[in-house]
Design a protein around this nucleic acid. Structure first.
Length: 340
RNA sequence: GCCCCCAUCGACUAGUGGUCCAGGUCACGGCCCUUUCAAGGCCGCAGCACGGGUUCGAAUCCCGUUGGGGGCACCA
């Protein structure tokens, strides 16, 4: 029975590297009919952030990644860790316990990552440890610790790292790389999940490809039904036509707001506006209205301005389609009266 | 400095000795669509890091070089 554990530290929103690891664990467990344990590596009180656990749970849910056991906080296992440290460690001059060259228990009695990780992997019957190559050097120590405790070490699988633009290990300083950042930017969770799954677990490093992520965002949006798109953006279904073509949820919201909240604008094209009013009153559909306006050489720009107050935005036909007849006449009428 | 890992278009990759004068996707460029910005459609550019082997035959195997990354904490 395969058992893996995803073990983030509660230091804030997961960055893409961690998220990639989470997705890889889920996939590995599923592929082998195994289980995934969620473990919170919070042995260092100094690094723990308030609400750190909740943030991680939110991130995982957003990605659609579930787990089978946990969350298990390492800090809650300190008694067992201390016991194990005394089993294998040697006291040093500062009152800490060491195993070989590594400290396993600090002088204040708290376990270090090396110890806690090894003990928990052993106690929870972890069969495969999947992690980035930045952990490669930890394998020997941790395996030794487990053997010293009378256990059999798991299989260690190290994969290449996710690199930022500068070609170094992705970290907070690279910016816009935490899940919270991406969510803020309007990238749908499933686009991120797809991207992470595409990464797989190669041994070589991989450059973070933001362009690919944006591409997947466009595709994820295209795959959403009208109702889903409306729900995700918190906008009424009626304005969905105006949101199509947006590249992310934030942009979709902006498009919708343009239609929903027009700003005042000077429009100087009375003939086009009058014609538009006629066409709308005539009950023509959006596309036909646009076609007819074009046929008479009307200024579509003026119509857009009249309807949204802006010079740019979603395709005019989509804007018209997103508005009710009354609202269309209202906005067009308001314009023709102010320009006359 | 020492130890470890890796190496196909700009990026992500397919490719595991012949079917590869290397295929796909993204980016990029051009065209079309669009009286806006996108989205969409079509076409195109571009690569096996280098040098030695092994072999009838190498992107695929071996060695070296170069390049890149990671580690060398009482951080995880």
């Amino acid at each position: 029975m395969v058992r893996v554990r995803f073990a983030p530290s509660p230091t804030g929103s997961l960055h893409l590297g961690n998220a990639r690891s989470a997705a890889a664990h889920r996939r590995y467990a599923d592929a082998h009919g195994g289980a995934m344990l969620l473990r919170i590596d919070d042995t260092d009180p100094a690094r723990n952030v308030d609400g750190g656990l909740e943030t991680i749970l939110t991130d995982l849910e957003w990605l659609g990644i579930g787990w089978d056991e946990g969350p298990q906080r390492q800090s809650e296992r300190h008694v067992r860790h201390r016991e194990a440290a005394h089993l294998v460690g040697e006291p040093d001059a500062d009152g800490a316990l060491r195993f070989g060259h590594a400290t396993v228990l600090r002088a204040d009695g708290t376990a270090t990552y090396q110890l806690a990780s090894a003990v928990d992997d052993l106690d929870f019957g972890i069969t495969h440890v999947i992690r980035g190559s930045d952990h490669r050097a930890n394998e020997e120590l941790q395996a030794s610790l487990i053997r010293a405790l009378g256990g059999e070490p798991p299989v260690y699988i190290h994969h290449g790292l996710l690199l930022g633009d500068d070609g170094t290990k992705l970290s907070k300083r690279h910016g816009a790389s935490s899940l919270a950042d991406l969510r803020e930017e309007g990238i749908p969770g499933e686009a991120v999940r797809t991207y992470l799954d595409e990464l797989g677990l190669p041994k070589h490093d991989v450059h973070l490809d933001l362009a690919r992520l944006r591409r997947l965002s466009i595709e994820a949006l295209a795959a959403l039904s009208d109702d889903e798109l409306a729900a995700r953006t918190g906008m009424p279904v009626s304005v969905v036509p105006a949101m199509r073509g947006a590249r992310d949820l934030r942009e979709a919201r902006e498009y919708a707001e343009q239609v929903l909240d027009p700003v005042a604008a000077e429009v100087d094209a009375p003939e086009t506006i009058a014609r538009a009013v006629e066409l709308v009153e005539g009950g023509l559909d959006a596309k036909s209205v646009v076609r007819e306006l074009k046929a008479v050489g009307g200024s579509l720009k003026a119509v857009r301005l009249a309807l949204t107050g802006r010079e740019r935005g979603p395709e005019l036909a989509a804007v018209i389609e997103s508005l009710s007849r009354d609202e269309l006449l209202n906005r067009l009428g308001r314009c023709s009266s102010t320009t006359r």
